[in-house]
Design a protein around this nucleic acid. Structure first.
Length: 421
DNA sequence: TCTGGGGTCCTAGGACCC
DNA sequence: TCTGGGGTCCTAGGACCC
């Protein structure tokens, strides 16, 4: 059996853990740059704030409805996520951390006398008690069905108390009959349209299509999903702590920028951040994509999107070398006269740091490796990226709008909660 | 003024091989 | 009249996820 554990309104719940005065109050959390709504408490949902709502359009509503607004605080959410996942791993060795707020747990080999339901309630109770984060759990014979079970646990919270189990054919059919097809895991816009044409409205209708039709119209991915929903497990637990295959750092800017030097600084900083992420997973990269773009929402201005891939003669994870390649890329695509709103760097062709292919003529500067090690450890000690390349802006770290950022309660000693008696 | 960021997997088609 | 039959590898782009 698979259990899907999902943190309820995760970012909003994280904010609430350290602000108990906000229990029962509407909360929203904004994306980077305070752009749009990416998380809402139940109360905010009830007030009609949609997911993805642009913040500037909803400012008035936030005020009028007394909604508490937060900038995203990834230091806090990341740490809270680690706590939840760490606890989940104490209940079963087989855990797949699927996203920052979700995990699949696999349960095998328990006999009929084992009371699964009370075990799930125990998990729920202990996680919430230890972290302050409320969770919902769905249990079923396959991953896709556990997602459905979780949706039911959440939708009918009063009755289920946040835990739902699909362990019989009867329950499976009932669940799929209820589940709207567009809410099914793996059914996006494209598939929904295709399915609508053949009259599929609920998950159950989907499982009644033929394998051939599904394979032809939705590829092997759709077929696996269909089988999973039928109760024939076709999606396995991804248990390897897999290293990433490419790593990206991209940001929208607070304003539009025309100046080459400004964009260059941003792109180099993104490259350095990618370098840090590479070193963290002991990888090097051998290619890098650089892109810059104008504001795609703005009408009347000439749109431009430039992107290029720089291939290196050797694999590296040195900030210095990555910065150099990033600038090479930027020079190819930068055009004068445009107002840029976003830029990004993606490193590709990742290889393990050890046993990199040595090139006969040109190689990564061997001195950089110990240097980066020192930089990383110093930055860890003295705080976020105090030590930078001279080509980066040494004054400011954040060039984002983050006007309503909460303290990093759990990762900075200076920002720890004080309790007044 | 103002609209996020970071991933994965699969497929089709082109280039190339013998 | 008539122009083979397999393969592999790579890339771009699509679809999806949170």
């Amino acid at each position: 059996m698979f259990a899907l554990v999902d943190c309820n309104n995760f970012y909003a719940s994280c904010e609430r853990v350290f602000r108990p005065d906000l229990v029962g109050k509407p909360i929203v959390v904004l994306s980077n740059n305070d752009g749009c709504v990416i998380a809402r408490s139940d109360e905010a949902k009830a007030l009609g704030i949609p997911m993805g709502a642009p913040a500037f359009k909803y400012d008035r509503q936030f005020k009028e409805k007394n909604i508490y607004v937060f900038s995203s605080n990834y230091a806090l959410y990341g740490d809270m996520s680690n706590r939840v996942m760490g606890l989940l791993k104490t209940f079963t060795p087989e855990v797949e951390v699927y996203s920052i707020d979700e995990a699949f747990l696999k349960f095998e080999g328990f006999d009929k006398s084992f009371d699964v339901e009370s075990y799930l309630f125990k998990i729920q109770k202990e996680v919430t008690q230890a972290t302050g984060i409320p969770i919902s759990i769905g249990l079923a014979p396959t991953k896709a069905l556990s997602k459905v079970a979780n949706a039911i646990a959440k939708k009918f919270k009063e009755r289920t108390e946040g835990v739902h189990i699909i362990d019989s054919e009867e329950k499976r059919l009932k669940a799929l009959k209820w589940m709207p097809i567009e809410k099914v895991w793996g059914i996006g816009k494209g598939n929904q349209k295709r399915l609508q044409v053949v009259g599929v409205k609920k998950a159950l209708d989907f499982t009644k299509l033929s394998d051939q039709w599904t394979r032809k119209n939705m590829s092997i991915v759709g077929l696996r999903l269909k089988r999973d929903l039928e109760g024939k497990s076709s999606l396995r637990l991804e248990d390897d702590e897999s290293v990433k295959k490419h790593i990206a750092t991209t940001r929208s800017f607070d304003y539009n920028y025309k100046d080459y030097e400004y964009i260059k600084e941003r792109v180099i900083t993104f490259a350095a951040t990618c370098g840090y992420k590479l070193r963290n997973q002991q990888s090097c990269c051998q290619a890098m994509l650089v892109f810059i773009r104008t504001n795609r929402h703005k009408k009347g201005e000439l749109p431009y999107h430039g992107s290029t891939v720089v291939t290196f003669p050797y694999p590296t994870n040195s900030d210095i070398e990555l910065a150099k390649f990033a600038e090479q890329g930027l020079r190819r695509i930068f055009k004068e006269g445009y107002s840029y709103k976003k830029a990004g760097v993606m490193v590709m062709e990742l290889t393990p740091e050890e046993n990199t292919q040595v090139n006969l003529f040109q190689n990564s500067d061997a001195r950089h490796k110990p240097l980066m090690k020192v930089i990383d450890s110093l930055n860890k000690k003295i705080g976020n990226t105090k030590l930078k390349l001279a080509s980066q802006d040494l004054e400011r770290t954040w060039k984002m709008r983050q006007e309503r950022l909460s303290p990093r309660y759990t990762t900075r000693i200076k920002e720890i909660l004080t309790i007044k008696v």
